[in-house]
Amino acid sequence: MMQRSRPEPVQVVKQRRDAALKALVEGVPYIRFLGITFDRRGDELTGVLNFDEKLIGNPFLPAIHGGVTAAFLEVTAIITLSWQHMFSGIESGEIDPEDFLKPEFPGFPKTIDFTVDYLRSGLPRDAYARATVSRAGRRYASVRVEAWQDNHERLFAQGSGHFLMPQPRKTERSE
């Protein structure tokens, strides 16, 4: 019978995954500017748009700016797609989060197009978003994302987009 290796201690697993997520999110100034953070349960991510007055688009209602909603959905889509794309590499140790800023790192998915449906006005409070990768090919990916505030059943926006996947750096062919 094959000997199964002992599972890693929970702290080791959590520390590795949280450090990778932190490096992925905190390296991007615009994500900090909007005050977006991510909650992680295993490999599942939820984007959190932490409310701030500067996110307001209509001061009379007041409501969150439509552009902020679009950006929140797009950021959640890219981070979720990047996270899923790299998850096995992070787990195996093949990808080191320290490399994200190095020039030889292949980079992150790039948005080709993104469509947002505005279903309700965004209230002046925190919002949440979750993305589903419908298809992740070698070159292109399709992602759907939905956002809500108080009640997950009552979405205030939904979006879908196409992304160009990072291509591995061409290396000297060794034969």
Binding site: V28, Y30, A71, T111
Partner: peptide, 24 residues
Amino acid sequence: NKDLVGDPRRGVIHGGAVSAMLDT
């Protein structure tokens, strides 16, 4: 504005900020 950068290696403005402009 550096605060709006989406690709810190190249200093490129995030697409989300461009979306917000286009929407406004």
